[in-house]
Amino acid sequence: MDIEIKTIDKDRQEYIEIGCWRVDERVNEIVRFVKLKQGSVEAYKDEKRYRIPLADILYIEAVDDRCFIYLTDDCFESRKRLYEFESILPAEHYIRISKSVVVNLMKIVQIKPALNGRFLCHLVNGENVIVSRKYVPDLKARLSGDTK
């Protein structure tokens, strides 16, 4: 595989492009590595420890004293508290939408009404998460870019 690196203007988002004949395990490995370099969190499933790339997280939900990290088709448990996640996760992409849920704004496909001034975030994997009334103004401000 040839490696080509070029510098781009500072006003553009940095990116990595992979030219390949087909997406195989080798390519997936590179993608996983790049995602991990962008940040990751430790999580558990079946007593095994994993590192979850932040970019893959759809939402994090607190249930009683436990926190669950939801990906497109997987779920992991974390020992961190929800407020700890809020300080770790990149603030521009993640936002608290209820007492128990922090969602990745980049994984929302559509926002729909959910009775009583609440809203539903329809995610890329087809799941819906509820936005409580209390958190609606924050979400509106973040999406419109009005963060004063």
Partner: peptide
């Protein structure tokens, strides 16, 4: 909000 969301995601993706 959905319209704002799409614009937000485009802004984030274009840096």
């Amino acid at each position: 909000m959905t319209e704002d969301l799409i614009r937000f995601q485009e802004r984030q993706n274009s840096g």
